[in-house]
């Protein structure tokens, strides 16, 4: 639904150059919620602003719903008619809501419809229906300043939906909200995604956001996407930083002559008594250092950090057994070995 290829963005100001995007290839499938996560300055905002060409990419292409937006952009700095039409079919939600303080809530939601030239009656019908959808039907005549942050963001979402977009872009839409409100806004986005089949590209710096609503995720660092995929793909990738950050496991090695292993269960493996089998088969004592279970995109995922007596070399066979059970095994502190094995 959204594809960027070789997207670069270089900001030039007063002779200094900042490369905010450095060859980004992003692929967001239709109907999914896609999260982009990364540290401050990684280029997340630049990326999402390039998707609807609010920011002109320095090079590369952006395709949304099969339409090459970069081709519509023209040469001048101003957006031509075709690009503006394409933008009206892409909704955008902002961190600071960006509601017009001089307009009522309803008039704010009507604004995109005014731009589309929809008649007055139809505008108010649609605005009220959208406000109802986001649970703010009673606030239609209020002004934005009279609303809480969460309510403002609901108005922002209703407004973004006014043009019947297929795609919703959200730049840190929950970053100015408290955890409780964040959850309710994320739930709303998830519901809209499911009810309307809306494709959502969201930017965040909070892992929890990715964990609770995203089907897929990408990690950005210094203008590049360093990891990407569906959440379950990421969890199945040995050494994935995103997976580790999504499901952090703690627990330190208790002695030198010990091997620490992170075990990830998903799907059917999660239901089998693997650990006790391991203990019985090889007659070893296993200590559990940490464990976490979570539901991601409707799938149960469990992770466990266990400790086996002896060094890695002594434990090759039991670890092999675990692998045979279809579990994903990351040996902590054995990156080199891991890479070698991955190459095989």
């Amino acid at each position: 639904m959204i594809t960027t290829s070789g997207l670069t963005k270089v900001y030039r100001s007063r002779g200094r150059e900042v490369t905010a995007l450095d060859g980004v290839d992003l692929h967001v499938r239709e109907g999914e919620v896609y999260g982009v996560i990364g540290q401050s300055g990684a280029g997340k905002s630049s990326l999402i602003r390039c998707v609807n060409l609010l920011e002109r990419p320095t090079s590369g292409t952006v395709t949304v719903a099969g339409q090459d937006l970069t081709a519509l952009a023209g040469r001048g700095p101003r957006a031509g008619k075709e690009l503006r039409q394409a933008r009206s079919r892409i909704g955008m939600v902002f961190q600071h809501f960006n509601l017009l303080s001089s307009r009522t809530v309803q008039d704010n939601v009507e604004l995109p419809l005014e731009i589309l030239g929809v008649s007055g009656k139809e505008r108010s019908r649609k605005a009220l229906a959208l406000l109802d959808l986001v649970g703010l039907a009673d606030k239609a005549k209020s002004y934005p300043a009279q609303l809480s942050g969460g309510q403002k963001q609901r108005v922002g979402i209703a407004r973004a939906l006014a043009g019947d977009p297929k795609v919703l872009l959200s730049d840190e839409a929950t970053s100015a909200l408290d955890p409780e409100t964040t959850r309710s806004i994320l739930q709303l986005l998830r519901d809209l995604n499911q009810q309307l089949g809306l494709t959502v590209l969201l930017i965040t710096h909070e892992m929890d956001v990715v964990k609770s609503v995203c089907d897929s995720a990408a990690l950005m660092e210094k203008g590049r996407i360093v990891e990407s995929g569906t959440v379950s793909e990421l969890l199945a990738t040995p050494g994935s930083e995103l997976a580790a950050a999504l499901f952090p496991l703690s627990g330190e090695r208790t002695g030198a002559e010990r091997t620490v292993v992170d075990v990830t269960f998903h799907g059917e493996a999660a239901t089998r008594p693997v650990i006790s089998q391991l203990s019985r088969t090889y007659n070893i004592d296993i200590s559990i250092l940490g464990a976490a279970i979570d539901t991601v995109g409707g799938l149960q995922i469990g992770r466990m950090r266990i400790e086996l007596p002896g060094r890695y070399e002594d434990n090759v066979v039991p670890i092999g057994f675990l692998r045979e059970q279809g579990l994903q095994i990351d040996v902590v502190g054995q990156e080199a070995v891991l890479v070698k094995e991955g190459a095989k």
């Binding site: 609010l54 957006a79 902002f94 600071h96 960006n98 017009l100 005014e114 731009i115 589309l116 407004r159």
Partner: peptide, 28 residues
Amino acid sequence: DGGLVEAVQSMGGNTWTIVRKVLVPESL
């Protein structure tokens, strides 16, 4: 606030729309 201008741009508004619906009413 420049964010308001950006919001209207993201809806597909042109410069004239931005002047009429954002800059003048918001600074009234």
